[in-house]
Every structure is written in C-alpha cells, then in structure tokens.
Simulated assay, not measured.
Amino acid sequence: MQNFEETKTLFNNSSLFYIISTDMDGKYSFINEHYAKQFSHVDTTLVGKPYYITMHPDDRNTCIEVSTKCFENPTKLFPATIRKHDGEGGYVYTQWEYKAMLDDKKNPAGIFCLGYNITKYVGEELQLQKANEKIEQNSNTLKNIIFQQSHLVRAPLSNIIGLTSILDKTLLDSNTSNICDMILESSRQLDEIIKSIVTNART
C-alpha cells in the first residue's frame, strides 16, 4: 500500500492525470484534485460514493470485468476506456489503467486507477473514420464511372463509328457523305475523350 500512497501524493496536484481508488464495496476511497474538479458537477464530495455515479451506465460492466482481472493478476495493470458525464448531458472519453490494491496480508483492498481524458483523440478518430468511409464511397463511385465510361458508353459509341464507316462507303450523294464524315470524326474525337477520362481516373 505504501507505493499507492506515494503515487497518490505525487499525482494529487496533476492537471492532466486522474487518480482514484475504490474500496471493496465499490466506493471512492480517494480522488485527486483534478478528478474532483472535472466531475464536481456529479457530486462535490465523491469520496464515499459509488464509483459508477460518474460514468455511462453501459460502462459499468467494463469496470467489473477489468477489476476482476486485476484481482486475478494483482501484479499487472489492465486498461479500460470509460465514458464519464460531462455535466452537459453528454460524455467525455477517459482512458484508464487499473491495478489491484492489496493490504499488508496480501488480501484484496480495492482498485487503484490512473486515467486521463481522451475525448479529443476519440473525436479525431471518428473524423478520420468518416473521412476514410467517404474516400471508400468516392472510390466505389469512381469505379462505377470508369466501368460505365469504358463499357456502357463506349460500346454504343463504337457501334456508331462502325455503322457510320459502313454508311460512308455506300453510294451517297456528296452532301450526305460529308455529313457521315463529320459524324465519324466527331465520334472518334468523343471516343478519344472517353479513353482519356478512363485512363486519368485509373491513375
């Protein structure tokens, strides 16, 4: 327990880290000043209150599971991500390391936790995820455009070029033959434009 007391003293005035401990009844036995200030909207005297009053109800099971692991492996630290009430109807995300506390006789005495706010990081992760989803969506759209350009559009265009070429070789008057030549040339130009669009889209 001496190490825990030294750690509590060291981080009591931290402006970044949360330090808390709970007893075997699941009640706060210690909170540092930073934690007390950040969650004073829940209760101004958290010590002696149930640990779960500051958190999202769905995260209670996470605490129970991680605490169980701590007592099964008292020399190890175990991580947990917990949502905490922000005082405005929402939640902040916090990341923790849990460790079992043992008394002088090596009996379970509670849980010691070191944590910090990761809300900004989670927000950036969500933005990145949305951006990746948008990129994937745009990529699929681009693939569809490439397919349509290279198959659905060029197929009938190739037919037009072929039919115009055949028509141009039949006995036509000079005016009609000239029109066929212009249709053929315009079709070939359009075909080259489509080829260029498909090529650029694939690079």
Rank of each mutant, 00 (worst) to 15 (best):
T164Q: 04
T9G: 03
R202G: 12
N107Y: 09
G162T: 05
Q2W: 13
D23L: 07
L190Y: 07
F71A: 07
P156Y: 09
S150A: 11
S21Q: 09
I193H: 06
Q38R: 11
Q189W: 10
L126K: 15
S165M: 05
D59N: 02
C70I: 05
L10P: 06
T22D: 09
W96S: 01
I160C: 02
I197N: 08
I20Q: 06
S15K: 07
M55D: 01
M101I: 12
N13R: 13
I194E: 01
F4I: 09
S14Q: 03
Y52I: 07
C113K: 03
L114S: 09
L184N: 04
I53W: 09
G90E: 07
T62G: 00
N178A: 12
F4Y: 13
D86L: 03
Y35F: 15
M1Y: 10
C113T: 05
R60K: 14
S29F: 08
K143L: 14
Q189R: 09
M101Q: 12
N117S: 04
R154G: 02
M55V: 11
L126R: 14
P108N: 09
I64W: 13
K27T: 08
S14H: 01
S158W: 11
G115S: 03
L184S: 03
K105S: 15
V66M: 01
K76P: 00
S40I: 08
D86F: 04
I111N: 00
Q149N: 10
G89P: 02
T199L: 09
P50D: 08
Y93K: 02
G110I: 06
P74C: 10
Y98Q: 01
L157E: 03
T68G: 06
P156V: 02
I145N: 06
P74S: 10
T119L: 01
C70K: 00
Q137C: 11
L152D: 13
N107W: 06
K27P: 05
I146R: 03
G162E: 09
N3R: 12
I160R: 00
I82F: 11
D181I: 03
Q189T: 14
E125D: 15
K76M: 12
Q95H: 08
C113Q: 03
G110L: 08
N178D: 13
L114C: 10
Y18T: 02
I31H: 03
T7W: 08
M182S: 11
Q95C: 05
D181V: 07
Y121Q: 15
K27M: 07
K69Y: 11
T75F: 15
C113G: 06
T68K: 08
N200P: 00
R60F: 13
Q2I: 11
F39P: 00
F39K: 01
R188D: 05
N73C: 14
N12F: 10
I160Y: 10
N175G: 05
P108I: 03
N140K: 15
T141H: 14
K49W: 10
E97I: 08
I111H: 00
N178Q: 12
M182Q: 13
Q38V: 05
H34R: 12
F112D: 01
I19Y: 02
K84A: 07
F71L: 12
I160P: 00
A201I: 01
K76A: 14
A100K: 00
I194R: 00
G87L: 01
E185D: 06
N61G: 15
M182G: 02
D181T: 13
K106M: 09
K99G: 11
I145F: 12
N117M: 05
I194Y: 03
E125W: 11
L126Q: 14
K169W: 05
D59K: 02
F78V: 05
I118L: 00
